[in-house]
């Protein structure tokens, strides 16, 4: 798993790639916490390179959703591969976070 982040004011786009499972969910959690701790309240997670995610990854997303909500922003996802989107739907996560086609659309949702 790899996370690359680009910052823009109080929003950021974190592009996660590879595999997120119980073996490395801790690393994913640390990566998102570090971003939010820099003062980011609108976090976009770009899933274009995400090959696999189990419920361990959902747990990490849930924590990040709570933290960004509490900061007055939120978490949005973009470029979600179909099979990961199904995980989000079956787990009810589509109600907790918005899913956008592009990172730009997701980032724009935090403007104003």
């Amino acid at each position: 798993m790899n996370v690359e982040t680009s910052y823009s004011g109080t929003t950021a786009v974190a592009t996660v790639s590879g595999r997120v499972d119980s073996a490395n969910a801790k690393d994913f959690d640390q990566a998102l916490r570090a971003i939010i701790d820099k003062g980011v309240s609108g976090l976009v997670v770009d899933c274009s390179g995400l090959r696999y995610m189990s419920s361990a990854g959902l747990r990490v997303l849930l924590i990040a959703i709570r933290k960004t909500n509490a900061a007055g922003g939120g978490l949005a996802l973009c470029q979600v591969p179909d099979h990961i989107r199904e995980v989000l739907e079956v787990s009810g996560f589509v109600r907790l976070t918005k899913v956008f086609d592009t990172a730009a659309d997701a980032q724009a949702s935090f403007a104003g």
Binding site: S54, L58, S91, R95
Partner: peptide, 23 residues
Amino acid sequence: PDLGLSAEDRTIGGLGIHLTKAF
């Protein structure tokens, strides 16, 4: 898992099994 709860009230317990049963 209660899928209707807000992010603040959701717990993650049982989600892995829920996905397993669905898949």
